[in-house]
Nucleic acid binder design. Structure first.
Length: 297
DNA sequence: CTTGCATTAGCCCCATGTCC
DNA sequence: GGACATGGGGCTAATGCAAG
């Protein structure tokens, strides 16, 4: 059983018409007929039921068809991978990044890279750190832009840039006009943030710990946008990275004077595996743009 | 009976394995 | 390395079978 036999079978089974399938495959009809017979002989079971001048796929044939399709997909993927391995300017890069990064820098980086290498195909995914890193370990992503992951022997993390965190207040809050605030200034306000497991939440918890302040949550959400929305509705205050999409008539972002509130975003990847040239080239591009060596246009 | 379609038969070509 | 056998790929032509 080889790839060609499977392709012949799949085409014939999908069309349920040997002559038309042979035309599609650009072989003579007997050649296809014989290839199918050989396959049936090897499998020891009929793939087609012959009724005079028509054929239909047997139930065994239908099962075998499903599996054959999967095998051929693997064949195609392996072939594509082999091609991609030789060409850094094409191929597939799957990138996961935090929800909070979906505006600004990341779209700009992607647009800049795509302008240089139009044949590169990006597959993007977003989510909280823990989900992204799980998917990274499962091979869903080649690279992820996340905050420092909790310990993992499989994932390596390389810091790239620092993101400032802001106190987010509803417009009209008594502190909304201030130029800078300390963490202690919002101690009495109901605090809204992301649920457990989010790296941003860990950063904020660490910030309060460092400042020696207690922290309790009035509301916990799944996305920074949701949190900002709840703040805008006057339900409390929060601490988030700059909210580019937030409506300034709803929420106000105030820099934090004390303690210094930064979180580092970096590139996560699986340590052991060797990335394709396309993935390596993209990682290098991000590094160089962020280091100011390269202009992202 | 004619037509359309699948299979079989007989042939050639080529790649691979085995033997010397 | 060359000779030979084997098996799979291809082709055309012939045959078998069922629908119209």
């Amino acid at each position: 059983m080889d790839e060609q036999q499977l392709r012949y079978f799949v085409t014939a089974a999908e069309m349920e018409h040997i002559t038309k399938a042979a035309e599609t495959l650009s072989v003579s009809q007997p050649a296809l007929s014989r290839a199918v017979t050989r396959l049936e002989r090897e499998l020891g079971a009929p793939l087609f039921e012959r009724h005079g001048r028509s054929v239909s796929v047997t139930s065994f044939g239908k099962e075998f068809l499903k599996r054959s399709r999967r095998i051929l997909q693997e064949f195609d993927a392996a072939r594509q991978d082999a091609l991609d391995l030789q060409a850094p300017d094409r191929g597939k890069i799957s990138l996961g990044f935090l929800h909070t990064l979906s505006t600004g820098l990341i779209p700009d980086l992607l647009a800049g890279y795509k302008a240089r290498y139009p044949d590169v195909h990006f597959i993007l995914g977003q989510g909280p750190s823990h989900t992204l890193l799980e998917q990274l370990e499962d091979g869903v992503f080649d690279l992820c832009l996340t905050a420092l992951p909790e310990f993992s022997s499989k994932v390596s993390w390389e810091p790239l840039w620092e993101e400032e965190l802001f106190i987010i207040l509803p417009a009209g809050h008594p502190l909304a006009e201030k130029e800078r605030l300390n963490l202690s200034d919002i101690q009495k306000d109901p605090f809204i943030h992301l649920k457990q497991g989010y790296s941003l939440r860990r950063s904020v918890e660490r910030l309060f710990r460092e400042a020696g302040l207690p922290l309790s949550f009035a509301f916990e959400g799944d996305e920074a946008d949701t949190v900002a929305g709840l703040v805008g509705a006057g339900l409390g205050v929060s601490i988030l990275p700059a909210q580019q999409t937030a409506d300034p008539s709803q929420v106000v972002q105030v820099p934090i004077a004390f303690p210094r509130a930064l979180r580092t975003i970096g590139l996560s990847r699986i340590q052991q595996t060797s990335a394709s040239p396309a993935v390596q080239a993209f990682a290098e591009y991000i590094r160089r743009v962020l280091a100011g060596e390269l202009k992202n246009e």
